[in-house]
Amino acid sequence: MKSKDQKLQQKHPQLVKKLQGDANYYYRQKDKTTLKLLEYLDFYNVEAYFVKVKSKLLKDKLFEIVLLDYDNVILHSISHWLLERLKEEGVFIEGKRKSIIDKYINERY
């Protein structure tokens, strides 16, 4: 979020670049961890689908992963490689749905 600050972008472009790189790194780590969890569960009782979003940047990109055997375990990603793996495993449902946590994911920051 800091990397989107106009003043910071003008005064410290190198810092902004580092912050963006850090954010991308941690999102990749999160996606790798998500995959490890899904593999541990053998993709059993997992469903995933694209979610309806207000954000133009996330439209047709953000998908939700729901672990049906666990209350309130809802994961999100925009990772292409994770999406392909979900499709390969047969747990990705085509079409868009309203997110289980719609109010949260569509909240402006």
Rank of each mutant, 00 (worst) to 15 (best):
L19E: 02
H12Q: 13
S99Q: 08
G95P: 05
Y44C: 09
F50R: 01
I74D: 05
I74R: 01
L37R: 00
Q14W: 10
Q14L: 14
R97T: 11
D5R: 04
V66W: 01
Y27C: 07
Y109C: 15
G95F: 00
L57M: 13
I100W: 10
M1T: 12
V73K: 11
E107P: 12
K61P: 09
Y104G: 10
E94D: 10
A23V: 06
Y27A: 02
D22C: 04
Y70M: 15
N106H: 10
Y104P: 09
D42P: 06
Y26D: 05
G21S: 03
L86F: 03
K2E: 14
L37T: 04
L62M: 15
K61T: 04
Q9M: 07
L82H: 02
G95Y: 02
I101E: 11
K61R: 12
D71K: 15
R85T: 04
Y70F: 13
K52M: 12
L8C: 04
A23W: 04
A48L: 02
S79Q: 04
S55E: 11
G90S: 05
F92Y: 02
K96H: 13
T33H: 12
K103W: 14
L15M: 12
H12K: 15
W81F: 11
S77P: 02
V16P: 01
V91W: 00
S3P: 02
D22Q: 06
V16W: 01
L35H: 00
Y26H: 09
F43N: 00
R97N: 13
S55M: 10
A23E: 05
H80Q: 15
L35T: 06
L15T: 12
I100E: 15
P13Q: 08
E39I: 04
E47F: 07
V53I: 06
L82P: 01
I74N: 06
R85Q: 04
Q20R: 03
L67F: 00
L15E: 14
I74P: 04
E89I: 04
V91L: 01
P13H: 00
S99R: 03
L58K: 07
K56F: 12
K32G: 07
L86W: 02
L67V: 11
Y109L: 13
L82K: 01
H12Y: 11
K17V: 07
R108E: 10
N106E: 14
L8Q: 03
E89Y: 01
L41P: 06
R85P: 02
K17S: 15
L86T: 05
N106Y: 06
L19C: 01
L62E: 05
E88H: 08
Q29M: 09
L67W: 04
N45M: 11
K30L: 05
T33Y: 08
L68K: 15
Y27I: 06
R108Q: 14
T33D: 09
L75H: 08
D71I: 14
Q14N: 13
K103C: 14
F50L: 09
Y40N: 13
V16Y: 00
S79Y: 03
H12V: 01
L83A: 03
K36M: 10
E39C: 06
A23P: 00
E89K: 00
K56C: 03
K54Y: 14
K7V: 14
D60R: 13
